[in-house]
């Protein structure tokens, strides 16, 4: 479904050039849920943005559903296949657009018919009642906003969802709701996930496989079972798992 080979991403020009991602390769199979973990600044979100075409300073090879993509240009088929959910639900909804306007635009751009019926369907899918349809973002809580953002991502019936820390801006009880929603949606729609998180517990709950990143490079790709056993092959992985466990006990 997604194949990334030797991906380099950089920002700026020499001598101020910063290499955010270095020689990253991984493959995500159809229907799989793949996690990218690492501390802040390790380049995990940058990888998603490069795949989505929001950054054009990258090199390497990225294939999405068998199609290679280039630069920051993406065609209509790409937008129909791949969608993204952003980290901060307070920044990812237009403050002047109602839920209805957001979904209406997404459906229209994706070339859908029966827009009125589909909006209600999407709202039902993400567990928001129809009473939310004509609200503005400032009338919604963080969790509700994130549900709207997920509904928007689902508008074009995508097959691959890029999840950029979708729960890190939410408080714990709402986090669990959103994670369960994402799990349910994946089962119902047969979605493939690439999920970025710094929270090992979230990745352990959501993903089948994960890549551990440090300083823009992948340290290790492991099965989620190995993560649960705490059995990393690299020092950094074990360190990360220990740190996360210590944090949870505290």
């Amino acid at each position: 479904m997604l194949n990334v080979e030797n991906l380099d991403v950089w920002f700026g020009f020499p001598p101020d050039r910063v290499d955010a991602v270095k020689q990253v390769s991984f493959t995500v199979a159809q229907g799989e849920s793949f996690g990218l973990v690492g501390e802040s600044g390790s380049g995990k979100s940058t990888i998603l943005r490069a795949i989505a075409g929001l950054i054009d300073s990258w090199s390497g090879r990225v294939d999405v559903a068998g199609q290679a993509v280039h630069g920051s240009h993406r065609d209509r088929a790409f937008y129909k296949t791949v969608q993204m959910v952003f980290q901060d639900p307070y920044a990812s909804l237009h403050p002047r657009h109602s839920v209805d306007a957001v979904l209406h635009e997404a459906l229209k751009l994706q070339g859908m018919d029966n827009i009125d019926r589909r909006i209600n369907q999407l709202l039902d899918d993400v567990g928001l009642g129809r009473g939310f349809r004509f609200r503005y973002p400032h009338q919604l809580s963080g969790g509700q906003r994130q549900r709207v953002a997920i509904a928007r991502a689902l508008a074009g019936n995508p097959r691959l969802l890029l999840l950029d820390e979708p729960t890190s801006a939410l408080d714990v009880s709402v986090q669990a709701e959103i994670l369960n929603l994402l799990t349910d949606l994946r089962r119902e729609h047969g979605l493939t996930y690439v999920m970025v998180s710094h929270d090992l517990a979230v990745v352990g709950h959501m993903c089948d496989r994960l890549a551990v990143m440090q300083h823009g490079q992948i340290v290790e790709v492991m099965e989620v079972d190995a993560l649960r056993r705490g059995a990393g092959q690299q020092d950094y992985t074990r360190h990360l798992i220990r740190a996360s466990a210590g944090y949870e006990r505290a």
Partner: peptide, 13 residues
């Protein structure tokens, strides 16, 4: 560079 602009761009706007 706001996320909602990026999201709209990803819808093909």
């Amino acid at each position: 560079n706001a996320d909602f602009i990026a999201a709209a761009r990803l819808q093909g706007a």
